[in-house]
Design a protein around this nucleic acid. Structure first.
Lengths: 237, 237
DNA sequence: GGGTAACGTCTACGTTGTAGAGAAACTCGT
DNA sequence: ACGAGTTTCTCTACAACGTAGACGTTACCC
């Protein structure tokens, strides 16, 4: 009998096949999703893949590069269709998509947010620059000039990231507990120094992130549209 | 001769006086400002203070707690005067203050942004909750009901943090280099895949963060004011 | 002084990222 | 089918890290 394609048939899923960048990054993402960023060590990831930790360096030059890879992988889940002429609707959709993505991978958000701070724009993983490029394209195609497109992008992405950070911060600690003060750990706060916060406990506890995001977007997008030469009529600049 | 207040006069600055939480945190902040977050290790900080690393544990229970302490220290630089009835002006001022603070301590921003993600609201260092409480106070005193105040706060802080992250990301790499494409490292990008980004190099290079922040705030604040029952006339809810 | 508590140091352990040398497995021309 | 050449993976080792626990040292109070 000739050897089969996969020489050692490993019934247990994902044990000993050939490695690849995607396999490594996916495993890394899985680990981060399941146990948080700190759990992602080279040794642990190696163990998860049934491989020597050192083998990983073939697919990511360092731990930092591995983290970048994970960011990239996650951002690839975001689809941007640059053909839609209705830029506001498109930006709205993308915002909600990104929000859901963040909720799906909350442990990755710190990466998305902080890694770019230590990497100059041009040296970032391409996957993380693609959304930027595509949104610029979208806006320019919709009639903005390049400079204005950049302004819109900045206000938009700034607000979007801000919202996501905000929402993730307010995650409930102990869903078992149903007294809001306790659930958020607010009982520790002195009632004299933090009366407002304590009083807001119930409101804090039921946070509708999607609605809040949408309202903010409405304000921002209509404000931007009003303030800039409306797309389709390239006026000044 | 009675012993003086400071028993051992150490002429060399900052060598051997008694430690204290403030001394430790300040040294930590200095180190982070100068060399980045990774440079802040217990051993290194100990060395910086001329002390055994272990002594630090008297003043911060762990490295994580030390980081929280640094966040707190930085946020204490932010002054909020809760008496101003002109909430928009006040929020504007605070936003610009926080922006400058972030530019002064760019290496601390990742802390400000990510630490809260791993700490439930109520368990955060008090110093980091105080701004929240004070801004809520400000808004409520200005006439908002509690629920609306929270909405305003969220939109505002979300946008503010988003802007700060955005601005810090676009920091120039090599100020010596004066060709924008090169300065931002954008020359690495394929002209086919990233035409928009590359074309925007000169615009990216001269980023007026303060102006951009201010415009965004204008949009947001006036939008919020228009959308909510105007302060002074507590209507619904 | 002497007792007590706070402060600081020492030593030691387990874990981390990763350099460097080598073994093992795959690929391909013949 | 086979050996050369390349790619992939493993082994060993090291310096640096966070921190537990026991111990010495200093400051303070009556």
């Amino acid at each position: 009998m000739v050897p089969v394609e996969n020489p050692v048939a490993t019934p247990a899923p994902g044990q000993k096949k050939r490695l690849s960048r995607d396999v490594v990054l996916s495993a890394a993402l899985e680990l981060v999703d399941a146990e948080g960023l700190d759990a992602l060590t080279m040794r642990r990831l190696g163990q998860e893949l049934g491989r020597d930790p050192m083998s990983l360096y073939r697919y990511a030059a360092s731990r930092a590069a591995l983290l970048d890879g994970v960011s990239e992988l996650v951002l690839n889940e975001l689809a941007i269709i640059p053909d839609d002429p209705d830029w506001q609707a498109q930006l709205r959709r993308i915002a909600h998509d990104l929000r859901l993505l963040a909720l799906r991978h909350p442990n990755v958000v710190p990466l998305l947010v902080t890694r770019p701070l230590s990497t100059p724009l041009g040296l970032r993983p391409l996957g993380t620059l693609r959304p930027l490029e595509q949104i610029l394209s979208l806006l320019i195609d919709a009639g903005f000039n390049a400079r204005d497109a950049l302004h819109v992008y900045r206000a938009y992405y700034g607000f979007l990231y801000g919202h996501i950070l905000n929402e993730l911060q307010e995650f409930i600690v102990d869903p078992e507990e149903n007294e809001a003060l306790l659930r958020l750990g607010l009982h520790r706060l002195s009632a004299r120094e933090f009366p407002r916060l304590r009083a807001l406990a119930p409101v804090l506890a039921d946070y509708d992130g999607a609605a809040e995001l949408d309202q903010g977007l409405s304000i921002l997008l209509s404000g931007l549209a009003a303030r800039l030469p409306s797309p389709g009529h390239p006026t000044t600049a």
